Amino acid sequence: MDLSIIIVNYQTYDLTKQTIESVINKEHPFTYEIYLVDDASQDGSLEKLQQDFKEENADGLIKFIASPENKGFAHANNLALKQTKARYVLLLNSDTVIFNDCLAKCLKFIEEDESIGALGCKVLLADGNLDKACRRSFPTFSVSAYRMLGLSHFFPKSKRFGKYNLTYLDKNQTYEVDCLTGAFMLVRSKAIHSVGLLDEEFFMYGEDVDWCYRIKADGWKIVYYAGAEVVHYKGGSKKRPEKSKLTHEFYRAMYLFYNKHYKDTYPWIITGITYSGIGVMYGLKYLKNFLER
Rank of each mutant, 00 (worst) to 15 (best):
F202A: 05
F184L: 11
V223Y: 01
K243I: 11
K243D: 15
K216T: 09
K190S: 00
R188L: 06
F184A: 07
S194M: 10
S237C: 01
A191M: 05
D208E: 11
L198M: 12
R240E: 14
D199W: 07
G235S: 04
L198H: 02
P241I: 00
H193S: 07
K239V: 07
V195T: 15
G227I: 01
F203L: 14
G227F: 09
F202N: 05
Y224V: 01
Y224E: 00
D218F: 12
K190N: 14
E229T: 10
F184C: 12
L197A: 14
Y233G: 11
I222F: 02
E200A: 08
V209D: 07
E229C: 13
G219Q: 06
K221H: 06
E229H: 11
F184M: 03
A228K: 00
G235A: 07
S194E: 14
Y205K: 14
V195A: 06
G196V: 09
F203A: 08
I222H: 00
H232D: 10
F203Y: 14
E229L: 07
K239C: 12
K216W: 06
K245H: 03
F184D: 02
I192W: 02
V209S: 14
A217W: 05
G235K: 13
S244L: 07
M204D: 09
V231I: 15
K221R: 11
M204K: 15
H232T: 03
V187Q: 00
K216G: 10
K239L: 15
F202I: 06
E207N: 03
K216C: 03
K245C: 08
H232I: 04
G196H: 06
F203M: 02
K243F: 14
R214S: 04
R214W: 05
A226P: 11
V231C: 10
I192M: 05
D218C: 10
Y225N: 03
G235C: 08
Y225R: 04
A217Q: 04
V230Y: 02
V209K: 12
I192H: 01
F202G: 13
H232S: 03
G236A: 02
H193K: 10
R188D: 04
A228H: 05
G227K: 05
W211F: 15
D199S: 13
A228C: 13
V209Q: 10
V223D: 06
L197Y: 09
I215D: 07
V231W: 02
K216N: 00
M185P: 10
E201G: 09
G206A: 13
K190Q: 01
E201S: 12
V209P: 05
E200I: 11
Y233E: 12
V223I: 11
D208K: 03
Y225G: 01
F203I: 14
W211K: 06
F202Q: 11
